[in-house]
């Protein structure tokens, strides 16, 4: 059974969101997602400063058997990327919620993004396959 921390929010496309100070949101992929992708070999990251529409594909995680897009959960600007992933994509496999974070976003609109899943709901989604 994969690890689904209760204090994070999730998307249907298997990203997690962590609220950081000053309205910044950190994004990564769930433990369940990294497990089903297998050993990651490459991560393509967006440029810092790029503005993203909600639902826009903005990064790619790649294993030997699959490549999967990462979608922006909200309209936002990229404020930081995890540059370590360029050399060490396996950080996502080893520590998906910690050192394997992918990017930090500054949402364009105020207030909590809508349509996100709680850990409990994401658990159900992950269990269904």
């Amino acid at each position: 059974m994969s690890n689904i921390p209760a204090d994070l929010k999730y998307t249907r496309s298997h990203e997690w969101l962590k609220a950081l100070p000053e309205g910044i949101v950190e994004i990564g992929i769930s433990d369940h997602a990294q497990e089903s992708l297998g050993d990651l070999v490459f991560v393509e990251l967006p440029e810092v400063g790029r503005s993203l529409a909600a639902g826009e594909a903005c990064a790619v995680v790649e294993s030997v058997k699959a490549a999967s897009d990462i979608y922006a959960p909200v309209a936002a600007t990229v404020v930081a990327i995890n540059a370590q992933l360029a050399e060490a994509p396996e950080l996502i496999n080893q520590d998906p919620y910690g050192r394997g974070w992918i990017m930090r976003l500054k949402p364009t609109a105020q207030g909590a993004p809508s349509g996100l899943l709680s850990a409990h709901d994401y658990q159900a989604l992950a269990a269904a396959g």
Partner: peptide, 13 residues
Amino acid sequence: LPVRRLDDVRAAR
């Protein structure tokens, strides 16, 4: 065979 299963992860990383 001439080789056993190959390490595809290493090949890509």
